[in-house]
Design a protein around this nucleic acid. Structure first.
Lengths: 231, 231
DNA sequence: CGATGCTTTGAATCTCGTCAAGATGTGTGG
DNA sequence: CCACACATCTTGACGAGATTCAAAGCATCG
């Protein structure tokens, strides 16, 4: 269990709000003692709407998505999860969403009770957890704004900027997309065809390029920022 | 715009997640000791994007809205606030939104630090605050789903059900709307014309009626539920 | 009363969704 | 290495739904 804290992270530690930021070695070890390693293959469900909400998870490596599917089969992706992200902080008895892996995942699993108790004794940890919660809400509100006000091409540019900011190793000239077009569509409140058409339009305007369908390149970052900005 | 007759405490106490639920008299008194009364007239800003986030507020009576306005003048309403609601729980230095009153407001103001400290010593209070936070997020995710997947008439029905559930004194045959059509549009990601047209359509289908423009009556609750349901 | 602000309606336009087909990739077995 | 099959992605044509711009209806309030 000593292996813990530090395989997380050259990425997570440089990220803004992460569970482990600014913690002392002792504090990190205390967390390590209640953490369990967990691995999941690509395209598997980490948890679903029916799962009792006893555990919370910290994503070490890989990518995942949070989705909600209605009884009529309508799927809305509520968020994508990146290394360092935290998922499962709810206060209901069971989760209100499902979490599905996009790639092989490594995570830390915590019993919620144990983590909460530790947080009570570890101010820095509690502060980090609150920050993470605030960020989750803040991003959900951003998404509300985008879905309420933006056209398809603008939503996609917002999405690119989102990836650029949050995805480890992403740079304007090389963004690897682990999600399908359908995932993007369900995240942005569009259909797969509209996503595809908007991508083609941006391609034709030389704003972006696709060396392969999963490999995005931003050619004109200024335009992307203009289209996708939030303020 | 007329102000709403609101029976505050009666509503707040029967509501699910409120700051004061299940607290003992002693605990309530401890809260009272750090609370300050505040009153605001209709159509005023309680706080704005620029306000430093030092205080949090608990709404006693009246209604308000949370909005975000972009540099291009696009406004998105992120939530409506009802008696018992809590606003201001963020972890950034300043707020990421503005709060505007729809009617005359009475609220409790707490210094964030003081409330946090008290919460540390008062498990019930902390639990209530966490529940409120979870509810806020849950509703934001509902809104993402609605904006991503629903037609104009469905969004309106969702909104009606939302009001029915949360607004004090609302019943199917009498819902007083303190907000304008523009507010509804900005909440639901529509234009005011689309809101008006959709309302007219629902009126023509005898699903709803408007004795006056601010007085909504649901004639066919089953249809409203079918159109506005979330699952 | 008229004046103002909010709401509704109308017509033209645009964006996006739907349905259908075609193209491109990826993986497998020969 | 090629050929085929399957999945994903792209494109096209059309229609539904929402926005835009403009004008007309209704309240409310001096």
């Amino acid at each position: 269990m000593k292996t813990l804290p530090l395989d997380v992270d050259q990425y997570a530690l440089r990220n803004k709000a992460t569970l482990f930021k600014t913690l002392s070695d002792q504090e990190l070890e205390a967390i390590a003692n209640i953490a369990q390693h967990k691995s999941i293959c690509a395209q598997q469900y980490l948890l679903t709407q029916q799962t009792p909400a006893e555990s919370v998870y910290n994503l070490i490596s890989g990518m995942a998505l949070i989705e909600r599917t209605s009884s009529m089969g309508e799927r809305q992706i509520l968020a994508f999860l990146f290394p360092g992200d935290f998922v499962g902080l709810t206060n209901s008895e069971h989760f209100e969403y499902s979490v599905k892996s996009l790639s092989d995942l490594h995570l830390h699993e915590f019993k919620r009770k144990a983590l909460m108790e530790l947080a009570d004794r570890t101010p820095h940890l509690k502060e980090n957890m609150q920050k993470i919660g605030a960020n989750v809400l803040s991003r959900a509100l951003d998404q509300v704004y985008v879905l309420g006000k933006k056209r398809a091409d603008q939503r996609l540019c917002y999405f690119f900027l989102h990836l650029l900011e949050r995805m480890p190793g992403a740079s304007a000239d090389k963004i690897l997309l682990p999600m399908t077009r359908q995932d993007m569509a369900d995240f942005l409140g569009l259909t797969i065809e509209t996503v595809s058409r908007s991508l083609s339009k941006l391609k034709k305007e030389n704003v972006i390029a696709f060396p392969t369908p999963q490999h995005l390149e931003i050619l004109d970052l200024a335009s992307v920022e203009e289209l996708g900005k939030m303020d």
